[in-house]
Design a protein around this nucleic acid. Structure first.
Lengths: 341, 341
DNA sequence: TTTCCCTTTGTAAGCGCTTACATGGATAAT
DNA sequence: ATTATCCATGTAAGCGCTTACAAAGGGAAA
């Protein structure tokens, strides 16, 4: 009972097994470069000592961490949860570890976290959306850390991306809304500043208006952060406008759920009195009643493919492909024909 | 334009600023130990070079990472999101970084992740619930990495914990249900194997039955993993039993939301035909209609205090205090009096 | 038998940082 | 003026690992 000091090191194992540190290292990292008998002896010492290699030391020596970092805007709601889960599963299968942090939609926080992750040796980074200070991309280039953008598809940008066309998706949905006879349409959007998804969804809605000869400025929009309460509040303000909107497009399902609740609190029938649409198709969309008509996003596919693509970028030092995924409208019960009263 | 090679090191900065590496290191870590003028010169070199200290090297030399690891069972639903967010905010304020991973409720995965986090030099660990192989606690002791358990309050265990009394909370809720005249009660629980929260909630429900002279074995229970669909399915099975339950206690809000949806799909009125209760009081509980009567858990308080406690354990090498938080029943609309038909 | 090659293992040089200790100059105390 | 102090900075020893290279031994080929 000596050695209470601290965790055993490679050296301790080597000495106790009567071999050199190099051999122990090989047993762990390239077992076939060591003869069976030696390996067994070493491994049993590893076990009895409860040895775990020191990660920092390994990283320093080997210059690889097998770690991928991801920074998502929020963990408070489920928007990124499913995709991230798939991302992590795929990474794990390929021997990588995922480090996640959330930036609370704050650019400074995101930047700090990017630096933290890079300093920690992340081999690659997953970022959400394209909008950020170009200096960050410079920094990433300089540090030679590949980054892949997800949840957004915009070709020919600084970083490769995997995602869907937010603009087009919202345009299709709005087109459908208009097709149902709605002319008084309002929108509850996330904060578009620094958020290309939010910005493009707004643009998409405007595109649809234009396509139908309506003036895009007619679309009254409230921007607010993605929280149920905010959706509710925005709904209350929008619905009291004159002329009163008959359809409200929401920037995501969370906002839509809030709007829906507020509508119900105000005694309004959805979609009888007012239609509400969501975006993302998270679980929430199916739970509320009426269930939300929304844009389905292939979360798991996106997460899984992002992992593969990023690993490719890391291992082959390629610049990465930009991949477009398809979305589709799922019609449930929160959208109905316009009810001209 | 030379030095395309790789990221600049401390050495590069030192040379370019005409000082020793020690001085540069001091500028970064103990600015007041260096004279103003020198510091400015060094810092400007740091900026122009875009130098970021190499984390692994720093860790190796300093033996501290200012990193805390947390392993949660799932990120797919919001159960842990709010608490974790508070945890992370508090840590961040204290200069620590949080590394999160999710184990998907799989003990082997959790164990692997604990080892990964420790190897990565986590200064401390946040774990959810007490149930795990005692060997893991041995390992943690040996590695001298303090661990704090959250979401559960059980004194005199291997690890200190911060949380609430799951058993007592469910007992109180069940007591209320029985007080409303329900005698045919069923329960949809999470998988209790390896999950003390689930196990204790079941026990709590049984306690309540006992208190009212009912036989605890009468409580029919379906255990299933925490997903909406599973809640729905379990509800369908339970409701077709004879005698038909008039109240269904759910292990958490997710399960309850599923049960509720299924009830509605089956044309049952809640709480007229059947009452449903949740647990955790996540956002979901307020969104569904009728809103869930559930057990409110002080998520943010738990997360914040966990951070403080864990930092204390790390910095002062103390064993940590076990802290009990209060829960309370929030009465909304999914629980009503028994309707004897 | 001799030569060559291949396999297994050891030796030791870093990886980029922090920090105990050493140094030297300036200031304060005597 | 001399000595003691203190402050700013430099020197250099690790931290625990990986890996290029060297060494040694055992066949296979000639």
């Amino acid at each position: 009972m000596s050695k209470l000091q601290s965790a055993p090191t490679l050296n301790d194992v080597a000495r106790k097994a009567g071999v050199s540190t190099a051999t122990v290292s090989r047993c762990l990292n390239a077992p076939d470069r060591v003869v069976e008998e030696t390996r067994q002896r070493v491994m049993s010492v590893v076990d009895t000592l409860g040895y775990t290699p020191n990660f920092a030391a390994r990283v320093m020596a080997a210059k690889r961490t097998f770690t991928i970092g991801a920074i998502i805007p929020t963990m408070e709601n489920a928007i990124f949860a499913r995709g991230l889960q798939a991302f992590q599963e795929e990474l794990h299968q390929r021997g990588y570890t995922l480090l996640v942090s959330s930036s609370a939609y704050r650019p400074e926080v995101e930047e700090e976290q990017i630096r933290t992750l890079v300093a920690r040796g992340a081999d690659g980074l997953l970022l959400i959306g394209h909008d950020r200070d170009p200096k960050i991309y410079d920094y990433l280039d300089r540090q030679k850390v590949p980054a892949l953008v997800a949840w957004s598809y915009i070709p020919n940008t600084r970083a490769p991306s995997i995602g869907f066309d937010n603009r087009q998706a919202m345009q299709t949905l709005a087109d459908r809304v208009i097709g149902l006879g709605h002319t008084e349409i309002a929108m509850i959007s996330g904060i578009s500043q620094g958020n290309d998804r939010a910005r493009l969804r707004i643009e998409g809605a405007r595109d649809a208006l234009r396509m139908h000869g309506m003036h895009p400025e007619e679309l009254s929009i409230i921007e607010t952060s993605y929280e149920i309460e905010n959706g509710a509040e925005a709904f209350a303000r929008l619905i009291s406008q004159d002329p009163r909107p008959t359809a409200i497009l929401c920037g995501n399902d969370v906002l839509a759920a809030g709007a829906l609740r507020q509508a119900q609190n105000m005694g309004l029938d959805v979609p009888g009195d007012v239609s509400i649409t969501g975006f993302d198709d998270i679980e929430l969309a199916r739970i509320v009643s009426p269930a939300l008509t929304t844009v389905h996003v292939p979360h798991r596919e996106m997460g899984g493919k992002a992992a593969l693509e990023l690993i490719e970028m890391v291992e082959k030092s390629t610049v990465g492909n930009t991949i477009r995924l398809q979305t589709e409208i799922v019609e449930r019960h929160s959208l109905g024909p316009a009810n001209k009263s």
